Simulated scan of single mutants.
Amino acid sequence: MRWIILDTETTGLDPAYGHRVIEIGAVEVLNRTVTSNHFHTYLNPDRDSDPGALDVHGLTTEFLSDKPRFKDQVDDFLKFIDGAELIIHNASFDLKFLNAELARVERKSVTDYCAGVTDSLAHAKTLHPGKRNSLDALCDRYGVLNSHRTLHGALLDSRLLAEVWLAMTRGQDSLMIDQFDVPPTEGAAANEHRSDTAKLPVILPSAQELEAHEKYLAALDKSVKGKCLWRTLDEGTTSVS
């Protein structure tokens, strides 16, 4: 399962009025693990940003003046999202801008290059109806650190959204309990099964995996306002002599 968590920054609110994409950030999530594989580019829009948009992203015309144009980056962008499911917060906004940019260079729409698009904002609204579901609000709700986010940035926001998305969808994980279609029976078959299982290698978690696990437990602690069941069970196990 390959997800691409994607975000853009733009010069304004509507491509119909000539507004352009000025930054694309996307990170890869492979089998529910955020990888180091990402796509990021600033783009020269050949126009100024509206004052309101500039207040949000801080990307000035001067800063963007020597950056590549969308036509120069489109092949790399489409290659990165190829075949993946895109996860975008308020997807309709980003899609209308990306599709407008693709149309300018005579390419098909985004959905022709990826496996589909999921709107994480719509998903959040189903989980938390009547509550604020901005990226900042979701970071706070799921314990994702975002104190370093003073301005919007496409790559930073896509990384934050990746953590939020994994937290929001953790209940959908398969526990892989039914790995065997038929349980082992008594006798030789059972002994054969135990013998095969005993040969399985033991792979210890890396420091990065342990850190990710601790962040996961901290988010669970926050959601239950105390110690989550996992920690309670772990304490009970370690206390047995």
Rank of each mutant, 00 (worst) to 15 (best):
M1E: 08
W3L: 12
I5R: 00
T10H: 07
T10W: 06
A16R: 09
Y17N: 15
Y17H: 14
Y17C: 04
R20W: 03
R20C: 07
V29D: 03
N31L: 10
T33I: 15
S36P: 09
H40N: 11
N44H: 07
P45A: 12
P45T: 09
D50S: 10
G52F: 10
L54Q: 08
L54M: 13
L59A: 01
D66C: 00
K67H: 05
F70G: 00
K71W: 08
F77G: 00
F77W: 03
K79G: 14
K79C: 14
F80K: 07
I81G: 03
G83E: 06
G83R: 04
E85N: 13
A91G: 11
N99S: 06
E101W: 07
R107D: 08
R107P: 02
K108N: 11
S109P: 05
V110R: 02
V110H: 00
T111C: 07
D119G: 00
H123I: 12
H123M: 15
H123W: 11
T126E: 15
H128S: 04
K131W: 09
R132Q: 15
S134Y: 05
L135W: 01
L138F: 03
C139Y: 04
C139A: 10
Y142V: 02
N146G: 08
S147E: 12
T150P: 09
H152C: 12
S158D: 13
L160G: 02
L161I: 00
A167C: 09
A167P: 01
R170M: 08
S174R: 02
I177K: 10
V182N: 10
T185F: 01
E186Q: 14
A188G: 02
A189F: 10
N191R: 03
L200M: 11
L200D: 14
P205M: 04
S206I: 04
S206G: 15
L210I: 10
H213I: 13
K215A: 14
A219E: 02
A219M: 08
L220R: 04
K225S: 12
K227P: 01
C228Q: 03
L229T: 06
W230F: 10
R231G: 12
T238V: 14
T238G: 12
S239I: 09
V240W: 00
